[in-house]
Amino acid sequence: MKRMFIYALLFLGTAILCLLAVYGITRYQLRQEEPIPNTILESETVPDMEGREALNQDGVHPAAQTVARVPEEEYFLVSEAGFLLVFCSDKSTICLYTHIPVTDFPEQERVRLMEGIWFPTMMDVYHYLESYTS
């Protein structure tokens, strides 16, 4: 009976050590995804008890502060080597590799994509791609 108890403790100890080792290994393999370039997250403001909007420590509405920092950026969607790429406004920095083949689009859109299409925001690019690929 004593041997069975010792074997059970050894088994439980080994199992716990293995679980801790797997947790330690996978913990360092998790990574945060990169945000989409030039995006700013906005937050909602909640009115206080008297119906006024909340102010931050500087006495400024958080939404007004966020709007002031929105960069004027444009994105250029173009077909290269049979796939679609999204470039930033300088036309040299690649913002997004889509891996979407041009053959998924109708002929009229292929001509436009060969020349390139400008979009004011990255969300507009996503909406355009979703409308033709889903």
Rank of each mutant, 00 (worst) to 15 (best):
M1S: 11
K2M: 15
R3T: 09
M4A: 09
M4T: 05
I6L: 14
I6V: 10
L9H: 08
F11R: 05
F11A: 11
L12T: 03
L12H: 02
T14F: 15
T14D: 08
A15N: 05
L17I: 15
C18R: 07
C18F: 11
L19C: 03
A21R: 11
A21W: 11
V22Y: 08
Y23P: 00
G24W: 12
T26V: 14
R27T: 02
Y28N: 06
Y28G: 05
Q29R: 07
R31K: 10
Q32T: 09
E33D: 11
E33T: 04
E34A: 10
I36L: 13
I36A: 12
I36E: 04
P37A: 11
N38C: 14
T39H: 02
E42I: 10
E42A: 11
E42N: 11
E42F: 11
S43L: 11
S43G: 08
D48S: 04
M49P: 00
M49L: 15
E50P: 00
E50V: 15
R52E: 11
A54E: 08
L55G: 03
L55S: 05
N56A: 10
N56Y: 09
Q57S: 15
D58G: 07
D58F: 15
G59F: 14
V60N: 03
V60G: 02
V60Y: 14
P62D: 03
T66N: 09
V67T: 07
V67H: 11
A68N: 09
R69M: 14
V70N: 01
P71E: 12
E72W: 08
E72G: 03
E73Y: 06
E74Q: 13
Y75H: 04
F76A: 05
F76R: 02
L77G: 00
V78H: 01
S79Q: 05
S79E: 09
S79M: 04
F83A: 14
L84T: 00
C88D: 09
T93I: 12
T93V: 12
I94M: 06
C95F: 08
Y97K: 07
Y97C: 05
T98G: 02
T98A: 04
H99Y: 10
H99D: 05
V102F: 01
D104L: 05
F105C: 01
F105I: 01
P106C: 07
P106S: 06
E107I: 08
Q108V: 09
R110G: 04
R112P: 00
P120Q: 12
P120N: 14
M122N: 01
M123P: 00
M123Y: 12
V125K: 00
V125S: 01
Y126D: 01
Y128F: 10
Y128C: 02
Y132E: 13
Y132R: 13
S134C: 14
